[in-house]
Design a protein around this nucleic acid. Sequence first.
DNA 1: CAGATTATGTCAGCCCCTGACATTCGGCAA
DNA 2: TTGCCGAATGTCAGGGGCTGACATAATCTG
Lengths: 226, 226
Amino acid sequence: MAAHTPRTTDAPEGPGRAPGLRERKKQQTRYALIQAAHLLFLRQGFAHTTVDEIASAVDVSQRTFFRYFANKDEVALAVMAVAEDYFIECLRRRPAEETPLQALRASIVKAWRDLGSAEISGPGSIGSALELLRIIEETPPLLAAHLRRVTEQERLVVQVLAEREGLDPAEDLRPVVLAAVFGSLVRAAHLSWSAEQEPAGPEGMVAVIERHFDQLGPALAGHWHA
Amino acid sequence: MAAHTPRTTDAPEGPGRAPGLRERKKQQTRYALIQAAHLLFLRQGFAHTTVDEIASAVDVSQRTFFRYFANKDEVALAVMAVAEDYFIECLRRRPAEETPLQALRASIVKAWRDLGSAEISGPGSIGSALELLRIIEETPPLLAAHLRRVTEQERLVVQVLAEREGLDPAEDLRPVVLAAVFGSLVRAAHLSWSAEQEPAGPEGMVAVIERHFDQLGPALAGHWHA
DNA sequence: CAGATTATGTCAGCCCCTGACATTCGGCAA
DNA sequence: TTGCCGAATGTCAGGGGCTGACATAATCTG
């Protein structure tokens, strides 16, 4: 029951069959909670929204809310989680000929683009994700929780990279270092993006990310000067 | 009154004179709170230590605790703050001939070394900082708060770098990107360090950091393979 | 030694979050 | 259909983080 992010694939998973009424209802209330929370956060801010408000907006008890989400942060970050999962998916599919760095860059760009065009998941529309990102950057405790999640995502990236290149991350630091660099680059891009007064859509985000990647070489190069 | 990290310099600052009794007492209780908290966190863990415990260990009311620290996290991160300030100090003093990346690397290494030999500040001994780092990495909410602080530190780094090289961070992304990369590198090192079963002292930390920096080039290079 | 400032204590209260227990509802087979 | 089992929900009580308001006690200033 516990808040597992739904896979994007619709294919029957393992021994599971068509989801029964119970399962459908659970997804439904989960989505409803996310949407209600999202709406309230947008209107009155994260801090000024109580869990009781969210719960009663969906007509469930506060206790039930906490059975779906471990804490108030989680419901806010749930939308982002979908995007993050999709990114990992993309990375896994990347051709082996690509450089690790190339693969990462291509994956993040593709992820944002795909999420931008097709509405991949239910309440996790691209607009939601972008709006959320703004709220997150502006809300210290949310930002903190988000950053923690990101670092966990990085562990996954390390694994995928190591697997891809066939080496042991305990021995070779390269996957760890690259994942760290990549993560920080993306975060810097998010920050730039959310600082823009007229926040462009997914394409704007892609542009910002590309700009940051392009500066990676120059930033590490010798002296800068004017 | 509000929890400003004491400068490492003892020289009279600005129009201020010798600190009166009030000021000294405040520093005293502040330090006492940090130490008591640190001890309790180490013994019983962060989550199982209540603010009331910390406060009554120093014989002040809970309310007073919250006048010194905005929240429970802050008292745990206070020790780290001293180290971080010192790092910025080091970076500022770096000779202009060094490459930005070199300056960053040299500063972080020097900061750990200096904190290791001299006991720079009161309760912020190097041992405390290292112990704290372990607790932080193991305690999700603390880690989250720490990461947020780190990103704010990065803003400072961006500023110093931009100033150093004489360019506007709003125009040129290089300071932003480099600061981000640097931050993530250091964090990856912290993670590696705290994952070691036999945590070495400051020198061990320096060694881990150097190892990670050395892998920056290789990680970004083309293909890896075995 | 007043009188102005400032730190501290006390109290009440909101909100986040959790364990325990009762109740209701969906799934399933006789 | 009926009846049972397990899962989801509701209700209640309570701990702990954190804040505003106000009173008290300490320091500082002239």
